[in-house]
Design a binder for these strands. Sequence first.
DNA 1: ACCTGAACACCGTTCAAGT
DNA 2: ACCTGAACACCGTTCAAGT
Lengths: 196, 196
Amino acid sequence: MRNRRADVVERALDVLDRYGLADLTVRRLASELGLQPSALYHHFASKQALLAAVAEEVLTRRPRRPRPDAWDDRVRVVCSELRDAVLAYRDGAELVATVHAFGMGASAPGRELVEVLEQAGCPTPLARTASRTLLHFVFGHAGDEQAHLQAGSAGAIPNDVRERADLLGPDDFASGLDLVVAGIASRLGAPVSGGR
Amino acid sequence: MRNRRADVVERALDVLDRYGLADLTVRRLASELGLQPSALYHHFASKQALLAAVAEEVLTRRPRRPRPDAWDDRVRVVCSELRDAVLAYRDGAELVATVHAFGMGASAPGRELVEVLEQAGCPTPLARTASRTLLHFVFGHAGDEQAHLQAGSAGAIPNDVRERADLLGPDDFASGLDLVVAGIASRLGAPVSGGR
DNA sequence: ACCTGAACACCGTTCAAGT
DNA sequence: ACCTGAACACCGTTCAAGT
């Protein structure tokens, strides 16, 4: 059976969603494709490169929403889209965060945030700092949500994970996001238009 | 050679700092201790449990600084201590963040932050949301710093990692932290005393 | 209490060779 | 261009047995 790069990435997304990042293995992916493990090295230089391509695909598939006029609402939409994108696949947050942290891709949302913030009047250094702070929040929050899901599906749930269960979710995400947005606004001397 | 639990954790910290989290392996740690891999399962139920103990030790060893009076300065001190703690060992941020996300420990800083924020007048749900947002920032920022260090010591540095090099470090940390603290303050209707 | 020895079911990666 | 087959140097974990 002959595969193209895109076919491999497609299958990798399937394996990711069904078995999780820890079990998205070169050997497992190969066997799902009916291939020898070594065959994957025709398409990707390394497992890291494979994961970078998968992370990029996770972001590419996110449904895009219209961009509001107010800078703070734009920030909220970009961050919510990113959250939706990484939550759409099991362990998506950890995958995308790792690829991003190692500078191997997944940089589109960060670039859009910097753009939005500069148009809002942020000097470039502040725009970059604020953009990264927003990304840390989105990846961290989505990662917590997915870690909790995983702990739930595997039997034993540690105490403080269960305690946090009701805190996670879209409302808490919006609430935390508002915190960071309000901080940017205060630094900017600009008013916050939307909120929730 | 006979070892106690604490000896194993001590050695694990040494291996972590010298080889990184990916190479902190049950087999490698055992061989550094002059043991068979299976011997470690006398001290720890699993590698996860070992890592949880190591993460806890990283936090325990952090030098404590005096707590200022103003709530926002207290938040800044707690977060800076946490940053110092995880930066003190190679891949410390990733290790502690992972253990924390899976609810296996490393929860002391989060608990202190909730306490500080409640004393500042935050209702409990806001205190929890703000605390987790602060932790996401600290872990994310410190993780970026260490990822960059690692990329630097390994040969090739991708473009956007190098671009971010000058942005990371204590000043950028303080700047991002101020963003989140200002956001909490605005939500709280409270004034920000310190800043940097 | 602490450890050995052996086994089990896995990893990522390389490389010559095939079609 | 895409893949096989075989090898290399590894993983975490279990378990009976030793001291």
